[in-house]
Amino acid sequence: MSIASLIDPVTAAGGPANLSRADAWMQGRTLYGGASALVAYTAAVRAFPDLPPLRAAQVAFVAPVGGEIELKREIVRQGRNVAQVRSEIWCEGACALTAFWLFGTAREPNAVHPAAEPNDWPGAPEDAEPVMTDKGPAFIRNFDLRRAQDERGPGAPVVRRWARLTEQGVLNHISELILMGDVLPPGAMRAMQRQGPVSSINWSFNVLDAAPVTRDGWWLSENASQHADHGYSSERLRLWNADGRQMLEGMQAAAIFG
C-alpha cells in the first residue's frame, strides 16, 4: 500500500489524526518502527517547512502506535545554523513515540573523512536472491528484500539485506531512509538460543549525506549486534546506497524475548 496514503493525514496543524491505512504497515500490534518514525518526522517538517536539512535524530519507541493518534511538535531551539525539533505521537492519552530531530545548514568543512565502504560487498541487488516473499509481518510486503550475505541461520550476529520500497518515487530520499532504516530484525536474532519475539526500543541515527541518492531505489541495510545479554541487544544500524556509499549510521537498543 502506498506510504503516501499512510502519511497523508499528517498535517501542518498537528493534533488528532486517523491513520486509516495503518493496517498495511503494522508489525504485530504496533505500527512498524520506520513508519512511525516517518509519521513523527513528517509532522515536524510539515509544521516547520523552512527547516535546514536533517542531520541526526533520536527516536524512542515508547508504546504501541495504532491508527488513532495525536501529533505534537515544537521547535525546541533554532539558532543561526542548527534547529532542534521535538515531535511526539500520542495514543489513548499517553505518549507512544517521542523523537528529537536535528536540522543543520551546511558549513565550509574543517574536517573531511569519508565513511568506509562495507566489508564483503555483496554485488549488485539486481542479481541477488529475493527473500521474505509473502512472509513476515504486514509491513514487509511494502518492501522488496534480497539476500546480501552468504550466512543463513544461526551464526555471527549480523543481518544484511538489499531493500527498496515496492512503490518508487513517492518519498524524498531522506523520508525514504527514515522509513527504511529500521526494516531488518536485530542482528542478535542470529545468536538467539531459541526462537522468540524481538522489539526495537529506540533508534538514534546520523544522516551522512543531506541529499542521498541511489540506483533504482536500492539500499543496502545492515543490523549488527555489538553486545547482547540480559534480554537486550545493542545494535549498529547502517545503510549504504547501491554504489557502496554510506548514507546512514545508527544505533538501537532491542529487546530480545523468549
Rank of each mutant, 00 (worst) to 15 (best):
A4P: 03
S5A: 12
P9S: 10
A12M: 02
N18Q: 13
A22V: 15
W25A: 08
G28S: 04
G28L: 05
R29F: 13
G34V: 13
A35N: 06
A37Y: 14
L38H: 14
A40I: 05
A40R: 04
A40Y: 12
A43Y: 14
A43M: 11
R46M: 10
A47D: 12
A47S: 15
F48G: 15
P53S: 05
L54S: 10
A56L: 11
A57D: 09
Q58Y: 07
Q58E: 14
V59T: 09
F61E: 15
V62K: 07
P64R: 05
P64C: 08
G66W: 05
E70M: 11
E70V: 14
R77E: 13
Q78E: 15
Q78P: 07
G79F: 08
G79M: 02
R80C: 10
N81T: 12
V82Y: 08
V82C: 03
A83R: 05
Q84I: 09
R86P: 10
I89G: 01
C91W: 02
A94D: 04
C95R: 13
L97T: 15
A99H: 15
W101L: 08
G104T: 03
G104E: 12
G104K: 10
R107L: 15
E108N: 12
P109D: 10
P109Y: 08
N110V: 12
V112G: 10
H113E: 08
P114R: 08
A115P: 14
N119T: 14
P122K: 00
G123S: 08
P125N: 03
P125L: 01
D127H: 04
P130R: 09
M132G: 04
A138C: 03
A138D: 09
F139C: 01
F139Q: 06
F143E: 01
F143G: 01
D144I: 02
D150L: 08
E151P: 07
R152L: 14
G153C: 05
P154W: 03
V158A: 05
V159G: 04
V159M: 11
R161G: 06
W162G: 07
R164I: 10
T166A: 08
L171V: 05
I174V: 15
S175E: 14
E176C: 03
L179E: 00
G181H: 08
P185M: 06
P185H: 01
A188G: 11
M192C: 06
Q193F: 00
Q193P: 06
R194D: 03
R194G: 01
Q195M: 11
V198H: 00
V207G: 00
D209K: 04
D209M: 05
T214F: 01
R215P: 04
W218K: 06
S221N: 01
N223S: 11
Q226L: 11
H227S: 09
Y232T: 02
S233A: 15
S233C: 06
S233L: 04
L237N: 11
L239D: 03
R245A: 14
M247Y: 00
G250C: 01
I256T: 10
I256P: 06
F257M: 12
F257P: 04
G258I: 05
